[in-house]
Amino acid sequence: MDSQQILDLYDWQEGLCFRHPARGTQETAHIKTIRPPAGGLQDVRACAECVLQIEDAKERAAARGGETYRPGRLSGASDAS
């Protein structure tokens, strides 16, 4: 899959990238929901650059573990645990 095909697997909305908050509001994808120690739930969002970096790391980890890489699944059932 090329980069655009991977990005197309995500729903994009305006938000702050967790790695680049100083860039301000930009198109981001939801990648995780966390439960901070202060309570409540917090959505973690990432810009396209970060989504591709995370997907690349996920693909390399799958290859090392002999697993099948499936792009587009950064947020999943393990969220908020």
Rank of each mutant, 00 (worst) to 15 (best):
Q53L: 11
E55K: 05
S75T: 04
D43E: 13
V44I: 15
T68D: 11
T68N: 02
G76N: 05
C50Q: 08
D43C: 00
A57G: 10
A46G: 07
V51L: 09
G72V: 08
A77E: 14
G66E: 01
G72Q: 09
S78M: 07
R73I: 13
A77S: 12
D56V: 06
L41N: 08
R70N: 07
V44Q: 12
T68P: 04
L52Y: 10
A61Y: 03
A61D: 09
S75V: 02
Y69A: 02
G76V: 01
R70H: 05
Q42D: 00
E55D: 03
A57T: 13
A77C: 11
R64L: 14
R64G: 07
G65F: 03
G65A: 15
V44W: 02
R64M: 08
Q53K: 09
R70K: 09
G76Q: 02
A77G: 11
Y69H: 06
T68W: 09
R45V: 06
A77I: 13
A57L: 14
G66H: 00
T68E: 14
A57F: 13
G76P: 00
A57R: 14
Y69R: 04
G65K: 13
A48N: 04
G66Q: 06
R73W: 08
R70Y: 12
R60A: 15
A63F: 10
G76D: 06
G65D: 12
Y69V: 06
L52V: 06
V51I: 15
L41V: 07
V44N: 08
S75E: 10
S78H: 02
A46D: 05
A57K: 11
E49F: 09
E49D: 12
Q42P: 00
L74N: 01
L41Q: 03
L52E: 03
A48M: 11
A63M: 07
A62Y: 00
R60K: 11
G72T: 06
R70V: 15
D56G: 10
A48E: 13
S78P: 02
R64N: 12
